[in-house]
Design a protein around this nucleic acid. Structure first.
Lengths: 350, 350
DNA sequence: CTCCTTCCTGCAAACGTTTGCAGCAGAACT
DNA sequence: AGTTCTGCTGCAAACGTTTGCAGGAAGGAG
């Protein structure tokens, strides 16, 4: 029923190969012929059959995008940006959701492998070795994890975590809690590592709680533990958990930031809307989505190009952090002044 | 490089057609042969090339999903559910975002048409006639709009709006505002229609404000207008706008719900997290996603099956609605009692 | 006038499947 | 013993493109 290349060829009186070239290699066909063919194609509503094209060229013009959880507000901006970037280049994006499950993730890669030109693996929960194995079956770009041999896009979350800890230490906090993320998460490890060094450097103590599911209830579930641990400030793996924690603390009659300060990571839209407005490390999700698509589509032919992008993160200071408990406070007045809503301390790497 | 059907055939000593049948029509091949072929396939890591299959069968095992805005928290649960439902049947989902733009939407449908077995059109901004036109090129299931000749999934938002208005009227509000959604939205019209009747029935007055962009800033932008209009309660097109409005009112030193009551629609996760917790009409987004996929994949062969699903909505009463301003209040004590957090009034259609 | 280029177009083989048709063996029936 | 039937398998044509190769026309150089 739909017009094929043969219909166009017949209509415009040329061979199908000429029609084909009109679309895939226009410079090889006489301008006159070209316009005639294009006119016929337009009139017949012809669109090249991508399956047929994929069959012979091996390029599908499709990209897979696997995320841990679509419903996690961190991902939609990333997906949106990736989709838009891909569409500009006439690519389409398969979106799939692993439900935070490494096994599902692996299945998804395998299922998608044959019908895409590459896969964007966002916040993977798999092991590095498995990712490397899979990358031999299909081009992979990994987002939110650093792996040596593969193209990767990461947020410089270590720097963000350091800024957050310094901010808290500057406010006089000496006992800081870290709500860890899910087990397989590179980002979680990275935050932990960086927070540990930063805490030590600030002469403070770090208590790690977790791993936890990276959502609101995962955060809420740690409230009691946080309280018992005696920390006066907390850095959470992401905003959702930070918000859950605030809710949980609230239910225990603990005030934020008066009794405990809370910092999140991601700066999802939500963090500006809750009360108190969340102090958080902003991660450029949309930029990451674009960068990942660019990276995947860049090395057109040359395999094994391993680019690495590290995206700047910023500390956005809002209302969920306040002075520490120390009677003769160490709080740096400069910091306290900077704690006005939406003040920004930023850092750029490379 | 990847194993083809020929490799499997050679390895297992049968003809390629037998291998093909092992996968697409197992009952036609001898159990013994079948297991042998499957073993070889497994060992070689063979996966049928979907492009080749699509080329000859015409079925791609792909589905398109077009939403107005991925970043709108209403959609992710819908996308997630649809993706999961589709994957169970070995389908993959292309996700695309129209940016609330009817023209982009049309382009997307056309671009996707040839490489999917059908498209889920969620909250379309196009005209009905254009949708009907496009449905002749590719099977369409429309979500959040009622169109006679096409399979559709709608939320019974009219009922939800009625419940919301009745709730407000019961609290003594006599002048109610409606923050309308975007221009092309069927849902917005539906809400308006239903709210108008319900308001009239309750002897109250309805002031419509809009159309507006269906996001937080769209809601915030109406704050002054709401204030000037003198209404004491507002029903917003969706939660995002309701939340934006609350923010906007807050900035104008207007308290919610003491001065003005606000009701949203959708019950996104966020609405439980802001302060005051939002009274809202819950719409079953995930169920809609599943239903739409089922509907698309159901009529395997028979074209022109036009199923219609109308999904139940519920009024979730939380903290953003309170008694109206009337000195000798008409507030029904029964209603006031029902206004405890998370009390639910529900309604089922068919 | 011949030869060599350059530019364009046609030819036909591929890409990896599916599927109608035909063939063959063995079983079952007459 | 002959016939029909059933269950399985092979054969080959198709699906709609792309692309290396060859050939023809036109034009310039010798």
């Amino acid at each position: 029923m739909p017009a094929t290349i043969r219909d166009v060829a017949r209509e415009s009186g040329v061979h199908i190969s000429t029609v084909s070239r009109t679309f895939s290699a226009p410079h090889l066909v006489n301008p006159e012929t070209r316009t005639r063919v294009l006119a016929c194609a337009e009139q017949l509503g012809y669109r090249p059959n991508r399956a047929a094209r994929a069959l012979i060229t091996g390029r599908t013009y499709n990209v897979g995008l696997i995320v841990a959880d679509i419903a996690n507000p961190f991902f939609p901006p990333l997906i949106k940006a990736a989709e838009s970037q891909a569409r500009q280049r006439d690519y389409h994006i398969f979106v799939a959701d692993s439900n935070e499950d490494a096994a599902v993730e692996e299945d998804l890669v395998r299922a998608l492998a044959k019908q895409v030109d590459g896969i964007l693996l966002c916040s993977p929960r798999m092991s590095n070795s498995l990712i490397e194995l899979l990358s031999r079956e299909v081009p992979l770009v990994v987002v939110n994890r650093a792996i040596a041999g593969l193209p990767t896009v990461v947020m410089d979350v270590a720097q963000g975590a350091r800024l957050a800890v310094e901010h808290l230490a500057g406010l006089g906090h000496r006992s800081i809690g870290l709500i860890a993320g899910p087990r397989g998460s590179w980002t979680s490890k990275e935050i932990r590592r960086s927070a540990a060094t930063a805490t030590r450097a600030a002469d403070a103590e770090l208590t790690v709680i977790g791993p936890n599911p990276p959502n609101e209830s995962g955060g809420a579930a740690t409230a009691e533990q946080v309280l018992r641990s005696g920390v006066t400030a907390v850095l959470a793996y992401n905003d959702l958990m930070a918000i859950g924690l605030i809710e949980g603390l609230h239910a225990l009659r603990v005030r934020v930031p008066e009794d405990i300060s809370v910092v999140g990571i991601d700066d999802i839209a939500l963090s500006r809307l809750i009360h108190p407005k969340l102090t958080t490390v902003a991660t450029p999700a949309a930029a990451a989505g674009r960068a990942a698509v660019d990276m995947l589509l860049a090395h057109g032919d040359d395999r094994r190009t391993t680019a690495h992008a590290s995206l700047r993160t910023e500390l956005v200071i809002r209302d969920s952090t306040g002075p520490g408990p120390d009677p003769h406070s160490h709080a740096d007045p400069g910091y306290a002044a900077a704690a006005a809503p939406d003040a920004v301390a930023s850092y750029a790497k490379e």
